[in-house]
Design a protein around this nucleic acid. Structure first.
Lengths: 230, 230
DNA sequence: TAAAGTATAATCGTATACGATAATTGTCAA
DNA sequence: TTGACAATTATCGTATACGATTATACTTTA
């Protein structure tokens, strides 16, 4: 369990939502590891609330696939098998290409500027825990122009699911530089309104990330099958 | 509010799940209409439980997009605008073609027989509230062979979201016959392991349903913008 | 009458409490 | 020592209760 997840002062939103957001970030940043049990009492105390809003937050996170549930045993942080990572990338490819296709003709210069500045910030960002967030910022800045909010949200959920693992694998600087270079190419194609080229690079970008991630997870010492150590 | 949603005898599963399943079915079958508020006390009493498992069920259904939530105002059954229906069909097309592509080479004869028998049953099924379920049975029988459970689940959620509306529009017998004919063609292509043809027909099937549904919703007396009558 | 304000009722949100279930530890016999 | 069983502890699941919020009905006043 991390030292502290978040301490709220008042209640400026709704409580289960705030708790879900805090836990979500902790999982994405790798501060909560796979298979780690989430104790309701403990988390409730951490946030200074009872178990009830905590459980609602967890039902939400379970629906997003970030945690798993077993009756009377509680919730644990999900672990993805290489096969599941592949599956998620198949879905991302199918959905993100649709989003990008529709977004490109609708991109405003403000969107392009924003995407470019996110890339710049990424260059100098030292804090690894922020990389996943910046990565999402870049992609979502482009996709949101499609004005398909449900699609964007589904993509976000899928992105979050691989987020933790992406973080580990981007740890290698060469992988990160390659990823950055691909982002720049995608942005250039967007600026030229070259849909086919942008989509093609995006596909390469995702399938490369998928392959690297799968290799990483397979090499990764533990040959784990869905949380059951062999 | 319908007469009865479901009366449980014991607790053979976990309670919020059972409640969610029951409400989900009620929404899919059109027994709970769009914008109808879901009163926690009332539903709790209906199931003979307190509000707490009811709220958890609702958080789950909200995550699936079937109901919406406003703090201190509670939950209401979602209403889809024509634009949202289109969006969902774009997503379905992107995802279902991937599922079908991968499934076809892996389809076992048992799967094909099952799909065929679902179509047969559909022919004779009088009860309209079952059509959505049978429709899903047919599609999911084909898709599950892909062995991508997350993808299948996401498709199911999307299917559920348009389920109610589909039900209304399939009310017209000609539309239903057309849909059945397309299903048969898809199945034939699957039997011949003709991936390209099957995918092509599936795309037509979905885009036709989408167009018809959008037209239907636009004609549909009420020119409603996200629940706010104009 | 209509707008504004107030009182009442309906509903929500969750802290507390407690029985139910699972995990852990301790005990005993083989 | 080790396996089976019992006792203990930890944790879960939710019914109850109650304050907080919102909706509705009822005044009051201009």
């Amino acid at each position: 369990m991390p030292k502290t997840l978040s301490i709220q002062t008042k209640n400026p939103g709704n409580t289960p939502e705030l708790i879900a957001a805090s836990l979500r970030t902790a999982i994405l940043q790798g501060r909560l590891e796979s298979n780690q049990p989430l104790r309701q009492d403990q988390i409730a105390e951490l946030f200074g609330v009872s178990k009830i809003p905590v459980r609602e937050a967890m039902v939400q996170l379970r629906a997003e696939g970030l945690i798993e549930f077993a009756p009377n045993r509680g919730f644990v942080v999900s672990e993805l098998s290489p096969a599941e990572v592949e599956e998620i990338y198949v879905m991302r490819m199918a959905l993100e290409t649709k989003a990008l296709e529709r977004a490109i003709p609708k991109l405003r210069s403000a969107d392009l500027i924003r995407a470019a500045s996110v890339l710049e910030i990424s260059e100098t960002e030292e804090d690894r825990s922020q990389w996943g967030e910046l990565n999402w910022e870049f992609h979502s800045t482009l996709y949101q122009a499609a004005e398909w909010p449900r699609l964007l949200n589904t993509i976000r959920v899928l992105h979050n699911n691989v987020g933790r693992y992406l973080l580990i694998y981007l740890g290698g600087l060469s992988a990160r530089d390659a990823s950055q270079a691909e982002h720049k190419k995608i942005l250039q194609a967007c600026q030229k309104r070259d849909v086919d080229r942008a989509v093609k690079i995006l596909q390469q970008h995702l399938s490369r990330a998928s392959r690297r991630l799968v290799v990483f997870l397979c090499d990764q010492g533990d040959h784990t099958i869905k949380g059951v150590k062999s």
